[in-house]
Amino acid sequence: MNVLNITLPWPPKELSPNARLHWSKLARAKKAYRYACAVQAKAQGAQRITADKLHVSLMFYPPSRRAFDLDNALARMKSGLDGLADVLEVDDRHWKLSIDRAEEVGGMVKVEVRHV
């Protein structure tokens, strides 16, 4: 594998660090998003990778022109990245991350995975 490109769904607002949800609703939202990202990754060809370290680039395409903070977007993405880690079978503590925002609207997160 040279580069793996995956498109994941935009993380739901319930996963925002600013959301004030009951712990059980938050747990359900995290579980659902983790599962959705794992299914999407598998559907796009992701599978177990033999690697000690990975570089994962995230490009956030917001669902609207409304402003958003990259740090909050990354925090919302945590469960989704865990779902991707489940599929790749590489612990996310061995990942180097880079994040950016796109000028275009799209309601998705494009992920590029490459060996370090």
Rank of each mutant, 00 (worst) to 15 (best):
L70T: 15
H22T: 11
W10H: 01
P12E: 03
K31S: 13
G80C: 14
Y35D: 08
K25I: 10
F60K: 03
M59S: 03
N18A: 14
D69E: 15
V90T: 00
V111P: 06
T7K: 09
Q47D: 05
S98R: 00
V90G: 01
C37F: 04
P9Q: 01
H115M: 00
Y61I: 13
H22V: 10
V39P: 00
D91E: 12
R101M: 14
V39K: 05
G83E: 02
L4F: 05
V3D: 12
R65H: 12
G106E: 00
Y35V: 11
D82I: 05
K42W: 09
N72A: 11
D92G: 01
F60T: 02
F68Y: 15
H94P: 02
A73W: 02
R48I: 04
D100L: 14
H22I: 13
M59N: 09
P11K: 07
K110L: 12
S16A: 05
V105P: 01
W23Q: 02
L88T: 15
L8N: 05
D52P: 03
A51F: 00
D100C: 13
T7G: 10
K13D: 07
R20T: 10
L97F: 12
V3M: 08
A51L: 04
R48S: 06
K78R: 08
S79P: 12
L8F: 10
L88R: 06
L26R: 06
V3E: 13
P17T: 07
D82M: 09
V105E: 00
I99E: 13
V3A: 11
I6R: 11
E104F: 05
A102N: 00
L4P: 06
H115I: 06
K96R: 03
N72I: 11
D82Q: 11
I49C: 02
I99N: 09
K25N: 12
R66G: 15
A75M: 13
K30D: 02
N72L: 08
L97K: 01
